[in-house]
Design a protein around this nucleic acid. Sequence first.
DNA 1: GCTAGTTTTTGACTATGAGTCGTAAACCCG
DNA 2: CGGGTTTACGACTCATAGTCAAAAACTAGC
Lengths: 210, 210
Amino acid sequence: MRDGALQVLLWQRAREPFRGAWALPGGVLSPGETLEESIRRHLAAKVDVREVSHLEQLATYGEPTRDPRGWELATAYLGLVQLGLDPDVPADTRWHPVDELPPTAFDHGAIVLAGRKRLRGKLSYSNAGFALAPPTFTLAELREVYVAALGHDVSATNLRRVLERRAVIEPTGERRPSGRAGGRPAEVFRFRDAQLAITDPFAALRPRRR
Amino acid sequence: MRDGALQVLLWQRAREPFRGAWALPGGVLSPGETLEESIRRHLAAKVDVREVSHLEQLATYGEPTRDPRGWELATAYLGLVQLGLDPDVPADTRWHPVDELPPTAFDHGAIVLAGRKRLRGKLSYSNAGFALAPPTFTLAELREVYVAALGHDVSATNLRRVLERRAVIEPTGERRPSGRAGGRPAEVFRFRDAQLAITDPFAALRPRRR
DNA sequence: GCTAGTTTTTGACTATGAGTCGTAAACCCG
DNA sequence: CGGGTTTACGACTCATAGTCAAAAACTAGC
C-alpha cells in the first residue's frame, strides 16, 4: 500500500530477454530447499524479509513458451507488506501500482493480476487485512486500505460493523486526533489475529440448529 | 461420487518406496509439455479423460523429504468426475472414500485433503456442482451430491432456492417419477453453465447503489 | 375406485447480515 | 463561543438464508 494504491515491487531487467521490462523478484530453487525457503531467500536480496507480513503460494506456471531462453517452471507466491513500512530496496527496483503496470517480463503481468485477484477474494472472507494494515489504525485509515485493495468504494460504517461482528478487529481503547483539520478524534483499532484465518462468512447451506 | 460418498481414484504401488500404499495418478513432466497437458496424459493411462468434467491446479509441493528417493517437486491438480459415470480403470486402481483413506504414499494423503477442502469452498461460492452432478437431476439427487461433498446435512428446500436465485440451476420442464416408492414426481433440473463461474455470493462491502 | 403412504413442492415465517442515511459527539480554529 | 470538520452511532430498509408445516402429486394395496 503506497500513495493510496496497491503496489507491487518489480525490478527492471538489464539484460535480454525482456531487457528494460519489469520482473517480479525471484530466482532458481537451490538443492534441498523448500519452495518457501527459496522465495524468502530471493526476496531477501531485494527487501527486508521480516517486513513481509504474509506469504502464500499462488500458482505454478509451466507454459513451455513463457521463457524464450528455454523451458522453465515458476511457482509464484503472494507476499504482503503492511502500510507504512518503507523497506530499503535496491536501485533497480521500484514499486508500481498494480493497476498501471509497466511492460512486464515473461508472464509476470498475468501473475501480478492473479495475485490481485487472490488478495481481493481473501479480503472478503478472511482477516487478510492484517497483512496490509499497520499494527494499529483508525477506521478511516483501514477504509483507505480496503478501497485501494478492492478497487471500489467501501463504507466506513459498514466496514466497522462487519469486521467487528466477525471479531476480526477490536478497539484498543486509544483515540487519535484526526489527521488534517479538527474533527472528532478517531478510535484506534487492531486486528485480533496476526495470522490468516478464514471467517466463514456465510453458512452456505449449513443447518443452523443441531 | 460413488455410493453416496466423495471418492478419489488411487492406485496401489507395487514397488518401493511405499510398496502397497496408495498413490494419486500422475507422473513426470515431458519436455515441452504444459502442466495441464501432462496431467491429462498421465490421467489418460488410468481413466477416460473425457469423463473429467473439471480440472484445476491445486498447489505445488516441494518438501525436499517428500520422496525418499530424492528431491522431487509435484504440482497437484483437482479433477472432478460426474456422478453416474463409471470409467473403466486398471486392475491396480480403486476408488476410495475421501473420508476413509487407506495408507497413502508420499504426501498424497495431504494432497487429497487439500483437494477436498478446495472443493468444499468452491461448492459454496461457485457453480462447481455441475462437475459432480449428472447432466440433469432431481433436487433429491443434487442434495445427495452436496451432502456427500460438503460432509454435512443440506436442506433440499434451501438448496433449490439458493441455487435458483443465484441462477446456477434451472428447471428443464421435465418430471421424473421418484425412485423408490410412489411420491410426487420430481422436477428435473440442469446447471445453467458447464463451466466454472463464481457466483459472487455476497457483495462484501460493495455499495449497492451507484 | 378409494385410501393410506411417500415424496416433492410451495409458501409463510423468522433470523441474520449488510447498506443507507441522518444525527449526535468530539474535536480545531478563529 | 460558534462555525466547520471528522468520526461514531442508531434507526431503518433490504436481501439472503434457514425452519417449518401444509399442499400437491404420485404409487400401491385393498
